[in-house]
Simulated scan of single mutants.
Amino acid sequence: MKLKSAHLMRYEAWECFIEEIITAQLLVVFDAGCRSTKACRANSLTKRAESGGLIACSHCCNTPKMANTHECNSNLCGLEAMDNQSTQCYYCGHWADARQGVVTDPLQCVKKKLCGDDEICSVTTKNIGGVTKYEFGCKQLLECQTHTIASLELQGVHTGIDIVQLAGAGTLQVIGRKRQINNCDICCGDDYCNDASCESVRRRLVTFANANRLNYTSLKVIQ
């Protein structure tokens, strides 16, 4: 598996992994990402996840990713049937149980997450105590449509969508907290599309939107 940052492989080999976890509320969730080959061999039979849930399935793989295909762990632990329904995203600092917190370099985020059926990828640039940090994860599609289309309009993209009407159905929010400011907040609908800084992902969406290749409903690129 090719990692986003080559220096992470300097000292040991890494593989993709997937875990099916049964939470204390008896919900089935999936945890995916990268871990060392040594950890894959040692923890393949671990019965309890770091979040406290029980691990029903745990597998690693290192099959090279081919063009137009998903990572090798997308077909493990029974996920194949869900592949066309759920979006897979980079995932750092967005949820309380994330093994990676917010990062100061987008390339540092190697954790991955299988989002819910009504969620897509998101990335946020934050200023926390004067330090720029990046948060990656999943957000509700309706919320994403609202603030992403508003953000594209501010970048000069004419979407033809009534932002006021859309905000009435969703949640158009400007977040401002003491010592924490969201400088950029964007979503995208393709697998692992939140693979860079918020500003970079936004520029990418603007390019596709101006070329009439962005679906404003799903926020996916039109092939």
Rank of each mutant, 00 (worst) to 15 (best):
44 S>T: 09
28 V>W: 01
69 T>P: 03
207 T>G: 01
218 S>A: 11
164 V>W: 09
45 L>D: 15
135 E>D: 11
52 G>C: 08
63 T>K: 12
11 Y>D: 15
161 I>K: 13
94 H>S: 12
101 G>F: 03
21 I>A: 05
34 C>S: 09
53 G>I: 09
182 N>F: 14
111 K>H: 09
22 I>Y: 00
205 L>Y: 01
27 L>V: 01
64 P>G: 06
111 K>V: 01
4 K>E: 01
176 G>V: 01
96 A>M: 04
109 C>D: 00
210 N>V: 04
150 A>R: 03
20 E>S: 05
135 E>W: 00
100 Q>F: 02
197 S>T: 14
152 L>D: 01
109 C>Y: 02
16 C>P: 02
59 H>Y: 11
221 V>Y: 09
175 I>H: 15
191 D>R: 04
34 C>D: 03
133 K>A: 15
129 G>A: 12
106 P>C: 05
57 C>F: 08
91 Y>C: 08
146 T>D: 08
115 C>Y: 10
123 V>G: 01
149 I>Y: 04
138 C>F: 06
109 C>M: 05
188 C>Y: 10
31 D>A: 06
46 T>A: 12
46 T>Q: 12
154 L>A: 11
86 S>K: 14
97 D>Y: 09
13 A>V: 07
141 L>I: 07
47 K>G: 10
199 E>A: 06
83 D>I: 07
180 Q>T: 07
19 E>Q: 15
65 K>P: 03
76 L>D: 08
204 R>E: 11
160 G>Q: 11
87 T>L: 01
142 L>K: 02
141 L>T: 02
108 Q>M: 12
145 Q>K: 15
215 N>F: 07
12 E>R: 14
170 G>F: 00
75 N>Q: 11
190 D>P: 09
68 N>D: 13
38 K>Y: 15
75 N>P: 00
196 A>I: 06
154 L>R: 14
155 Q>A: 14
50 E>S: 14
175 I>S: 14
78 G>F: 01
163 I>P: 02
17 F>K: 02
223 Q>G: 11
